[in-house]
């Protein structure tokens, strides 16, 4: 397979995740779409790392996965706290910072 195959797959996955972030109302699904976008970038890292025969990109994916795990933990804690406050997880309800 050529490098561009993997890059295009990564771009498509990133776009799907982007669509989910913009389109969905459920905060949990928005968080999952964010994970999809991070995942697409990880694929990009690994593809370029393999193409350049350099391990640095692959090692960066380690850190990317760790940061994503921390982000999910904090994000879900915030969602649960907001759910306790508002009894809903739809993004339309969270507009405290608007005014």
């Amino acid at each position: 397979m050529m490098l561009s195959h993997y890059l295009i797959v990564s771009g498509i996955l990133f776009s799907i995740g982007f669509l989910g972030v913009l389109l969905r109302k459920n905060t949990l699904v928005v968080l999952m779409s964010l994970e999809l976008m991070l995942n697409a970038v990880n694929l990009l890292f690994v593809a370029f790392s393999r193409y350049n025969l350099s391990l640095d990109g692959s090692i960066f994916v380690f850190f990317s996965i760790t940061v994503a795990a921390a982000e999910v933990a904090v994000g879900l804690a915030i969602v649960v706290a907001l759910f306790r406050l508002k009894q809903t997880v739809f993004v339309d309800a969270f507009n405290e910072m608007k005014n």
């Binding site: 397979m1 490098l3 771009g11 990133f14 799907i16 193409y51």
Partner: peptide, 27 residues
């Protein structure tokens, strides 16, 4: 806006990644 921006992003990325310098086989 969501659908248009997604199409723009996906199309742009695909166009970018179809450039000849990326059409190399893996070493």
């Amino acid at each position: 806006a969501a659908i248009l921006s997604t199409l723009t992003l996906g199309g742009g990325l695909t166009f970018l990644f179809l450039a000849p310098e990326f059409r190399q086989s893996m070493p």
